[in-house]
């Protein structure tokens, strides 16, 4: 699965894109976050305040309990500030 990061999340993680094989224990976004937090201290730090993190699955806004598949594109980002 493809994982994208934007804005300060990209800076904290140190990457804008990560490609991983979906671990068996990962069923939804929250499971994925728990998995990612174990990858590095940077990930742990990036996902510290979940209230300030939004998520999209295949370019649609999603929730932390949204179910995900191997072929999904997941994006993590802070609340938007355009306009």
């Amino acid at each position: 699965m493809k994982i994208l990061y934007f804005s300060w999340l990209k800076e904290k993680v140190g990457n804008n894109l990560e490609e991983i094989r979906k671990p068996e224990e990962v069923h939804n976004i929250m499971d994925l976050i728990e998995f990612l937090k174990d990858i590095s201290n940077k990930h742990q730090e990036a996902f510290k305040h979940l209230k300030s993190i939004k998520v999209a699955v295949n370019k649609n806004f999603a929730d932390f309990d949204t179910l995900i598949n191997e072929e999904d594109e997941i994006a993590f980002f802070p609340p938007v500030t355009g306009g």
Partner: peptide, 20 residues
């Protein structure tokens, strides 16, 4: 647009870039 379109602004203040 302000609340749903995925854009993020970063402002340059002195030498720092600060996410809005």
């Amino acid at each position: 647009l302000k609340t749903s379109a995925p854009f993020w602004k970063s402002e340059k203040v002195n030498k720092d870039n600060i996410w809005v």
